[in-house]
């Protein structure tokens, strides 16, 4: 305000008040910011740094700078050594297979359940609690439980197949059984979040619109298509993006159910990266390079989705 007419005494007081104000802000903010910078921002750059080294985690001073060697190893192979290239591309291929099949399922199944719950039949709140329950369980417990469901001799699923006269399937050791087991487990485990998010969107839709449309002679599927789905487009976008990212990061399901088999056909990229990180022949630098390539891919896919969605919404 009247800044010009402050005498030195007032200036000093104002300065002190400001300093105190910023000290208070700093005191509230700094603990978090320091942790955030140390464990989220710094590792990001440190990881890029590591990827240019033949890195030794336990004696970092002995690490040797190798330039782009790790990236070359992962992407193209070096001379006769093509094993890492094979691992990288195989892991990427397996991860992409999982992403392409799981994402539609992880959107569609929650959407159907959310629509059914939004009709608000008897006990709909209890149903929501049931479908969300697996989400709070840990992958290691789920791995044990589902590995047994798919067990060839003592498993529940083959038990049911046998009951109807079918032959036992060796789910976890053959394809496509292994992928089916991983997908079923994933759908069972993770639909809760998307169901709740989509359901929250549906709940906001004005139900009088439904009635008006039905009075005009629309059937329920037309109502869903032309009123409900456009109304929850925001939630759909959020769910799709977060689900794609989560599916790229798949690790626990194949690691615990199939161990990556049969014949590495379900060994996803995260498992190859994890395998390079520790152990006697660990190559953390190579693991870092693979992780950064994978991270770049995830970022590109996310940005691509955002651009696509913005266009679709604007149209």
């Amino acid at each position: 305000m009247a800044k010009k007419f402050l005498n030195p005494e007032q200036k000093k007081r104002r300065y002190l008040a400001n300093a105190k104000r910023y000290a208070v802000i700093g005191a509230f903010l700094l603990p978090y910011i320091i942790l955030f910078a140390t464990f989220f921002i710094y590792p990001f750059f440190y990881g890029i740094y590591i990827s240019f080294f033949r890195w030794n985690v336990f004696d970092t001073a002995s690490s040797t700078f190798v330039g782009f060697e790790n990236y070359q190893k992962a992407l193209f192979g070096i001379g006769d050594i093509t094993i890492w290239r094979e691992y990288f591309w195989l892991g990427l291929k397996n991860t992409l297979i999982f992403v392409l099949i799981s994402v539609p399922l992880l959107i569609l199944v929650p959407l159907i359940i959310a629509i059914l719950i939004d009709i608000q039949p008897r006990g709909y709140k209890a149903f929501r609690v049931i479908f969300f329950l697996p989400t709070v369980l840990s992958i290691s417990a789920i791995g044990i439980i589902w590995k047994w469901q798919f067990d060839t001799n003592n498993g529940f699923i083959n038990g049911i197949i046998n009951l109807f006269g079918g032959e036992s399937v060796s789910w976890l050791n053959t394809q496509p059984g292994a992928w089916i087991a991983i997908l079923v487990t994933t759908v069972w485990w993770t639909i809760g979040t998307n169901t709740v998010i989509l359901g929250a969107g549906l709940k906001e839709v004005d139900k009088q619109l439904y009635e008006a449309a039905e009075l005009d002679g629309c059937n329920y599927f037309q109502v869903l298509r032309h009123i409900s789905l456009p109304a929850i487009s925001n939630q759909m976008i959020i769910c799709t993006i977060t689900t794609v990212i989560a599916s790229f990061n798949i690790y626990g399901q194949p690691a615990l159910l199939t161990g990556g088999g049969p014949e590495r056909s379900t060994t996803v990229l995260m498992m190859f990266i994890r395998g390079q990180l520790t152990g006697t022949n660990a190559q953390p630098g190579l693991a870092a390079a693979m992780a950064i390539l994978m991270g770049l891919l995830i970022i590109m896919v996310s940005i691509g989705q955002l651009i696509y969605n913005r266009r679709a919404v604007n149209r």
């Binding site: 990881g47 590591i50 992780a291 970022i299």
Partner: peptide, 20 residues
């Protein structure tokens, strides 16, 4: 915005950090 940084890229450097 930093929530966009894929967590996979942080695992290896974090591991190296906690060892150190």
């Amino acid at each position: 915005t930093t929530m966009m940084i894929p967590s996979v890229a942080n695992i290896i450097p974090l591991f190296s950090m906690v060892v150190n």
